[in-house]
Design a protein around this nucleic acid. Structure first.
Lengths: 197, 197
DNA sequence: GTTTGATTTTCGAACGATCGTTCGAACCCT
DNA sequence: AGGGTTCGAACGATCGTTCGAAAATCAAAC
């Protein structure tokens, strides 16, 4: 069953690219057929529906983010180091999987029913992961501020698809470092270490 | 011509609300007709097309943001104060006009041709305004970092529509203060004033 | 190595639904 | 009467999806 999996993978990757460029709703199944070389009806052998196609992209990508983040935290015990590792991983993953992450970020309200519930469950786990890191790195902050700060950080990182050009002047590692510096310097270090250290 | 303007205003406000809730592409002109009480054909007396309707919403909202930002900067001369005033204005304006700002942020790639060009021109002016503020507030930063930091800040602020609940625990002013603190503390103060001041 | 038959994979053609938009007649107000 | 305003009805286009048949693939039998 190897050819089947390869073709599905190819279809998902290509659909993510087209969705990222044109938007989910503006992309027709006929567009995807033309871009992938398959026929219109042929795609329905691999995918139950257009919505299912979007869900598969989001689910696989989001799972990859969560797993990657968990691995990135390994080996770091200092709360601030762990938070920085989380940020660096998210940003570099984002820039390395721009199409999928744009589809995940920008088309998050499209799914409905069980497909939506499935993706939202992964999202909750990911948000909880960050909030846990923040609780350790900024224990003196009010919970409501920590929660808002978490979303502010996600905003900085997920907005990337609106402006970042991988072929531009700033490379992913530098961007990740900049965002980490802004957030750590502005939210964490400012309160916990007044005198430096 | 008073009733005409009032009805157009009402249509735009309502369309912004429906677009914000359901998305531009998922909203049909029939949906807007049903929600506004007008007939399907009747709306075309006020608006040339669905795309024109979206452009009107974005244009008016964006113009309001730019004008408001200019006014908010008045009276502040210190670069850091000016940057903070810009942030506070953007965030409070965003939370006060959530529907329009969500439509502006989330449906920014929908327009094409002249309508797109028109909105993009306002956007450029607004981005330039922030980059100017950053140049004064963080003159020692490399331009590429300043530019990326500007987009990171816009990310923090424009992501709001994805999570902020106006009826929730954190009020707009506190959120604005938090974001200002994160950005100023992380990007500006960390380099320019080592010893505080 | 060729034939056979079952299974997997592809696709042309069409379905019903919904979309944005238009048009001409009706309506309302002065 | 006459211009500003509304709307029912319909247009052509495009959408996601389905269906049954053709094509390709593969394993076993000869």
């Amino acid at each position: 069953m190897r050819p089947y999996d390869e073709r599905l993978e190819h279809l998902l990757a290509l659909a993510a690219k087209v969705f990222a460029e044109a938007g989910y709703h503006s992309t027709s199944m006929r567009d995807l057929a033309a871009a992938s070389g398959m026929s219109l009806a042929g795609m329905y052998y691999y995918v139950r529906s257009k919505e299912d196609l979007l869900a598969l992209i989001q689910e696989r990508c989001f799972t990859g983010v969560v797993d990657g983040a968990r691995k990135a935290l390994d080996g770091h015990s200092d709360p601030q180091d762990r938070l920085e590792a989380f940020i660096r991983h998210h940003v570099t993953f984002f820039t390395a999987h721009m199409s999928e992450m744009k589809v995940l970020s920008h088309e998050s309200s499209v799914l409905s029913g069980d497909l939506r519930r499935k993706v939202n469950h992964i999202k909750r786990r990911y948000v909880d992961l960050l909030e846990g890191l923040l609780k350790d790195a900024a224990p003196d902050e009010r919970p409501v501020d920590r929660s808002a700060a978490a979303y502010a950080l996600f905003g900085m990182m997920n907005w990337i698809y609106n402006w970042y050009d991988p072929a531009g002047e700033i490379d992913p590692e530098r961007l990740a470092g900049l965002i980490a510096r802004i957030f750590l310097g502005g939210f964490v270090e400012a309160r916990s270490t007044v005198h430096g250290g």
